[in-house]
Amino acid sequence: MSVTMSTTFQPNSNNNQTVIVKAERINKSFGRLHVLKDIDLTVKKNEVVVVIGPSGSGKSTLLRCINHLEKINSGHIIVNGRMIGYYERNGRLVEESERNIARQRAEIGMVFQRFNLFPHLTVFQNIIEAPMNVRRSDRSAAEADAMRLLERVGLADKRDNFPSQLSGGQQQRVAIARALAMKPNLMLFDEPTSALDPEMIGEVLDVMKELAQEMTMIVVSHEMGFARAAANRILFMDEGRILEDTTPEDLFDHPREERTKAFLSKILH
């Protein structure tokens, strides 16, 4: 019995045991404002974690700390087995060199609320920019990858357009392709659909759902449909703390905390 259990279970669980992100007791303040309070978070390979919470709860800051766009005040974050942004010297944490931080960030894709595509470059150039100048891949390989990614997000015909010629939904799909071109093993999404007109949200979520099947993702978003369809876990954050960490079904159907209930009643109408 135990033998069959282990043989059927082993490959899958092994796969799921690889820890991609491990954050321990992280604290972050902006001046006197204490935004993250003793946050612990572990994300394993291929997990899709959705983070919800009222504005100002610290969810975007948490995401930005994971690729060191924000410095943390204490604690540490390990991404892909290495501490991000800092190294230890004589028991103290010292900030990494810019080059090493850049190297670590190259393995982490990020998609922003406001897309942040490079407006002076075409869609195609946006995608090959980092592979060519950061990874130093050769042009033909970078271009083949870019074309494949554009097809995947359904925008192959827009390759020579400038970002300003695209709709918001199209721009966000390009931004996803741009991040994927670096072949990251973790993708961070910071409210990817909040700046979009309602009719364009679906096309972006479809791309994300498909990606969720093979990618480790942390998604700050209030798209409950996406959370139900694609997330393994959902975190509810409030006032700099993670109050709930459970499955989407559990959170939506049986929220434990009063604050979760109050928040859900507001966003679910």
Binding site: A102, R103, A106, E107, F112, N116, F118, A130, N133, A179
Partner: peptide, 10 residues
Amino acid sequence: EAAKSLGMTY
């Protein structure tokens, strides 16, 4: 920020 998130140095 977008450039840095893609692994570019300053």
